[in-house]
Amino acid sequence: MNTVELLRQRLAVLQAESIAIEDESHRHAGHAGAKDGGHFVVHIVAAVFAGKNTVARHRLVYDAVGDLMRGKIHALAINARTPDEV
């Protein structure tokens, strides 16, 4: 399973209405640290983010992603919104 599929699988626990994942690894070729993991952007819309600030939303995403951040992912940009914010 590739990293995008793994991310999508892990993020399923947030019961998102939508998830879009962009692999931007090719834009960071040669970057120190990029050899060990990819660069990804996650756009996620989920009701679980309601009433939470940006830091709390990102923590939920990082908790869901778990150990991928210590291997397959070098950098993760997160755009986390509620359905009402879309």
Score class of each variant (00 low, 15 high):
41 V>R: 13
42 V>F: 12
43 H>V: 04
43 H>Y: 15
43 H>L: 13
43 H>Q: 13
44 I>H: 00
44 I>G: 08
44 I>M: 02
45 V>C: 14
46 A>F: 11
47 A>C: 10
47 A>E: 13
47 A>F: 08
48 V>A: 15
49 F>K: 04
49 F>M: 08
50 A>G: 12
51 G>M: 11
51 G>L: 13
51 G>Y: 09
52 K>R: 15
52 K>D: 09
52 K>F: 12
52 K>H: 15
54 T>E: 03
54 T>K: 10
55 V>K: 05
56 A>D: 06
56 A>S: 07
56 A>V: 01
57 R>V: 01
57 R>M: 04
57 R>K: 02
57 R>F: 01
58 H>N: 10
58 H>G: 00
59 R>A: 01
59 R>F: 10
59 R>V: 03
59 R>W: 06
60 L>H: 10
60 L>E: 09
61 V>T: 14
61 V>D: 00
61 V>Q: 08
62 Y>E: 09
63 D>Q: 15
63 D>R: 15
64 A>T: 08
64 A>Q: 09
64 A>F: 04
65 V>D: 00
65 V>K: 07
67 D>M: 13
67 D>L: 11
68 L>E: 10
69 M>S: 15
69 M>F: 15
70 R>V: 13
70 R>Q: 15
70 R>A: 15
71 G>I: 05
71 G>Q: 05
72 K>M: 06
73 I>G: 05
74 H>R: 10
74 H>V: 10
75 A>E: 01
76 L>R: 04
76 L>C: 05
76 L>W: 04
77 A>W: 07
78 I>S: 04
79 N>W: 08
79 N>H: 15
79 N>M: 09
79 N>P: 00
80 A>Y: 07
80 A>V: 11
80 A>P: 01
81 R>C: 03
81 R>W: 10
82 T>A: 14
82 T>E: 03
83 P>Q: 09
